[in-house]
Amino acid sequence: MELYDVDEFWKFDLRVGLVKRAEKLKRTRKLIKLDVDFGGEERTVITGIADQYSPEELEGKKFVFVLNLKPKKLSGVESQGMLIVAETEDGKVYLLPVPEEVPVGTRVW
């Protein structure tokens, strides 16, 4: 395992976001488009978990996202962040919901 200085970790902007809308992208097997509220700012985030979760399981829930990644186009849609999940060695993905009382936009560290 490679070790990093803690200053490297602080470069990432991790925030709590509320998934307002979620929809499976047509002609893809794994991609879901999320419209996420970060408190005063809404972003589109594409996540590749549609083979294990439906859009309905994401809508209305809070999760942690990385916001300061370079935008990336996936299936023609620009993703402006990344959903943080847990994944086992065999590829099982687990959502990491944020408690309801945590405000949208809260910084995570």
Rank of each mutant, 00 (worst) to 15 (best):
R27Q: 15
K62E: 10
E87H: 05
V93T: 01
K11H: 10
V16R: 05
K24P: 05
M1C: 02
F65W: 04
L67N: 06
L18M: 13
S79E: 14
L96G: 00
V102G: 13
G17C: 08
K92G: 06
P55Q: 12
T44E: 13
G40A: 09
P97N: 12
V93D: 06
S79R: 10
E56I: 07
R15T: 02
V66R: 00
R21V: 14
A86R: 12
V45T: 03
K73G: 00
Y53F: 13
T106W: 06
K30T: 14
L83E: 06
V6H: 10
E101I: 08
V98K: 06
L95I: 08
D90P: 00
T88D: 04
D51V: 09
G48A: 12
E100H: 08
M1K: 09
F9D: 02
L96F: 01
D51M: 14
R107M: 15
A50F: 06
E23W: 05
A50R: 02
E101H: 15
K92Q: 09
R43W: 07
L67A: 14
I46M: 03
L34N: 12
E100P: 03
V36M: 09
S54R: 11
T28S: 10
K92E: 15
M1G: 14
T47S: 09
W10M: 08
E57F: 07
G17T: 01
E89T: 01
V6D: 01
V77D: 02
K61C: 04
P55L: 07
I49Q: 03
K26T: 13
W109D: 01
T44W: 07
D51N: 15
E89W: 08
I46R: 01
L18R: 15
E89V: 00
L69A: 12
L14V: 07
K92Y: 02
N68T: 00
K70L: 13
